[in-house]
């Protein structure tokens, strides 16, 4: 196989994976960092890293997990590099508020705001389970926790959201 053909195939493979998982990557990044602009930057950096290390992905069936792991690490690196302040719920920037853009459904708006206000420790496992479909075992492995800790965090996250929904009714 000559070089341009090999490179073409590699690019084709990459483009296919990105087309399938780009939305998951963005939504995961957005709920991790809670900022629309930062999420876009994190996804850019994750795509670059994924491109460079594509050859290490042996099985495309594992692509989603591989890409989301890269997003998670890039998010951590992003914040470490910039030493950004944590989100101030009462004083959101425009980019943070953009994530909470209103929908026609008031209940979903309120719930979205409540999810936004969860601590990182509760929000991340919830997103991984409900949005990305990960099992608690898989979440535990990704976050470096025991399964029991993940279950506790998920329980507390749902409890807080349930209280929030009840308060808004």
């Amino acid at each position: 196989m000559n070089s341009s053909s090999a490179e073409g195939k590699r690019r084709q493979r990459f483009d296919s994976l990105v087309a399938v998982f780009h939305q998951d990557m963005y939504r995961f990044a957005a709920w991790l960092c809670r900022d629309k602009a930062i999420a876009e930057d994190v996804v850019q950096e994750a795509l670059l890293r994924a491109w460079k290390s594509l050859d290490s992905l042996r099985d495309d069936a594992a692509a989603k997990h591989w890409l989301l792991t890269i997003v998670r690490r890039e998010n951590a690196r992003y914040f470490e590099r910039r030493r950004l302040e944590t989100v101030d719920i009462d004083n959101l920037t425009a980019s943070q508020a953009a994530l909470l853009a209103e929908t026609p459904d008031r209940e979903i708006d309120d719930l979205r705001e409540a999810i936004f206000g969860l601590d990182d420790d509760y929000r991340e496992p919830l997103v991984l389970q409900v949005l990305m479909g990960y099992s608690t075992n898989e979440i535990a492995e990704m976050m470096g926790l025991k399964q029991g800790a993940v279950l506790t965090r998920l329980h507390r996250a749902r409890h807080k959201l349930k209280d929030s929904v009840a308060a808004n009714e």
Binding site: R11, F14, V18, H22, Q23, Y26, R27, A30, W31, K36, E40, Q44, E45, L47, L48, W51, L99, A101, D105, E107, I108, L111, R112, I115, L126, V127, V130, L131, R158, L161, V165
Partner: peptide
């Protein structure tokens, strides 16, 4: 409801220079 709330709009893909 949580799943619906998490499905935020996704902006158009900007591919970085590879």
């Amino acid at each position: 409801k949580i799943a619906k709330a998490l499905q935020i709009d996704v902006p158009e893909l900007r591919m970085p220079e590879l």
